[in-house]
Simulated scan of single mutants.
Amino acid sequence: MSENTSRRPDRAALLIALGLVVIGAVIAWSTYNAGGPRGYSPVGPKTVPFVIASVLVILGIFTAIAGMRGDFPEREHHDPKPILWILGGLVIQMLSMKTVGFSIATGLLFALVAKGFGRGPLWMTIPIGIVFSFVIWFIFAKGLQLSLPAGPLERLI
């Protein structure tokens, strides 16, 4: 492509820019309307959220400028199947955590994320994920005395 040829505005970049500005505005609005003690110092608990909101809005503006100029490189085609495996694992974990417990639900998440990354068959990754998740549950629930959802596997201990 020659230097004189101008690219069309990148709609995906403009959509990302809009999302950044909206998220920044929501954070700023929420922080502004949040109650809390007013102190003598201008720096307080609302300072960091306002800084984050400002940075997001500024990033959104720069992203919009780059999108209007067409400065973003061409993107590769993406296969949606791995993302669907990962999202499916997250949905299964969220829906089954209270009924089957942390170890089994997180083990299923592990297996589906591994499948999304193209690793191992499910018959192998599900038990591996459950064992790893049980070890994590044991460390957090018994060692650190933190409360994680317990299912039939955790109730054996």
Rank of each mutant, 00 (worst) to 15 (best):
S147H: 14
F134Y: 15
V131E: 02
K142H: 13
I92K: 01
S133E: 06
A13C: 07
D79S: 15
Q145W: 03
G107I: 10
P121D: 13
N4C: 00
G143H: 08
A141M: 04
G36E: 06
K46V: 03
I65Q: 02
P42G: 09
A64P: 08
K46L: 07
E3F: 12
D79R: 14
L87Q: 00
V48K: 01
E76S: 13
Y32L: 10
I104S: 05
K142L: 08
I92Y: 12
V113H: 02
P49A: 10
K81M: 12
R7V: 11
L146R: 09
M1T: 08
I104T: 03
I58S: 05
L14P: 00
S54M: 11
A64R: 04
A17R: 07
L146K: 10
G89Q: 09
G101H: 06
A13E: 06
P9R: 02
N4H: 11
A150T: 09
G116F: 09
V100A: 02
A17T: 05
W29D: 01
P149Y: 04
S30F: 03
S2I: 07
I58F: 13
A34P: 01
P152Y: 04
V21P: 01
A17D: 05
H77F: 12
V57W: 02
L20R: 04
A150S: 15
G107Y: 04
A66D: 15
L15A: 15
S41H: 02
G67E: 03
G120A: 13
G19N: 04
M1V: 11
V21M: 15
F117I: 08
T106V: 12
R75T: 12
A66V: 00
S147A: 15
V113I: 15
D79W: 07
A12L: 11
I27W: 07
L59M: 10
Q145C: 00
L59A: 12
A53L: 08
A111F: 02
L56W: 02
S147E: 14
M1S: 14
K115M: 10
G107A: 09
E3G: 14
S103R: 05
I23E: 04
L56C: 10
L95P: 01
P152E: 10
S30D: 14
A141D: 13
R38I: 15
A12G: 06
G88I: 04
A114W: 03
G24V: 03
A17L: 07
I136R: 01
G35W: 09
M124Y: 08
A28F: 12
P9I: 04
I83F: 13
S30M: 10
D10N: 11
V43D: 00
P152D: 07
G88L: 12
W29P: 01
G35Y: 11
D10L: 05
G120Q: 03
Q93W: 12
V135H: 02
K81A: 14
L20Q: 04
A28G: 14
G70T: 07
F62T: 11
G143C: 08
S96G: 12
P149H: 07
I52S: 03
Y32M: 08
N33Y: 06
G151E: 05
P49Q: 09
F117G: 04
S96M: 15
S6K: 13
V131K: 02
R8C: 00
A17G: 08
I104P: 01
P42M: 10
K46N: 14
R38H: 11
G39R: 07
Q93N: 15
